[in-house]
Amino acid sequence: VAATLPAAAEQVTLRVHHFLPTGSTAHAKFITPWCDKINKESAGKLKCQIFPAMQLGGKPPQLIDQARDGIADIVWTLPGYSAGRFPVVEVFELPFMMTSAEATSRAVWDFVQAHDQAEFKDVRPLAFHVHGAGHFFTVKAPITSMADLSGLKLRAPTRLTNMMLGSLGATPVGMPVPQVPEALSKGVIDGAIIPYEVVPAIKVHELTKFASEGDPSYRGLYTTVFVFAMNPAKYDSLPDDLKKVIDANSGAETSAWIGKVWDEADGPARQRLVERGNPVNVIPAAELDKWKAASASVTEAWLKDVASKGVDGPALLDAARTLIDQHSK
């Protein structure tokens, strides 16, 4: 056995840092398999040390700078955590943009390559992806129309979703994810918007009675962009054969694969709701047309925001939509 192992000198260990526990989809279904794959394809020369749950210190918004500074070699994080730093890629988080996570993830990769390299110049992005569309999970009544949202206290995950819920008449409550179960069970909030994948982890299927998703013909209510990025110096220090392994496991295909992992994680989570007898209500497309009009103010706010930074917002919005459409066919 010893003979087939590469000498220690040739072996490169990559410190991979992220913010979720080991049981999460990210750790178990994406990062660990990705590490196994590069280990195998490099004949054992590339090895990951995965540090889940912020074991290397700091808070999730600091992960991106940890990759820049070489505190970690690879990180998985949300650009949205560092609000104001990645305003352009936020275009994918606008209301009613995404289709499937797989297609949208591929679109994000292509979009950044073509239009948005400046925002990520400090790191070497290996992949971008999004989660499946976010839906409504409510305690008292299902959401079928905008009127149902009026005055409802809903937990929103990001700045744009806060604005969106406000534009639809709800009262957005910004709170960290770990507080959500307690807040739901005691009526501090009336519901939350999250993707299906997150439902079992924070027991939302047990704490709410109704799920409401948009008509499947319609684009998703919202999504969140994630980035899987490497320290550039670490990449440059690799010998060519190992660079090739990393290259083969990054880019559009890898991004699409990660998106697919998230798409696939939605199914069983939705199934658990159905098995519990929580009705999954569908918001009709005609109703969503009204929502789209009402939430246009969010898109306008984004356009204004990037315009102040000298970015051609309308063109980028168009490019993002076109890419999503292309990859959704």
Binding site: P61, Y81, S82, A83, G84, R85, T158, N162
Partner: peptide, 17 residues
């Protein structure tokens, strides 16, 4: 200095970190 340069801010209120 770095955070000032990068424009890092809080998620909801956009208060610079």
């Amino acid at each position: 200095q770095e955070l000032r340069g990068s424009g890092d801010s809080s998620m909801i209120l956009r208060v610079p970190t």
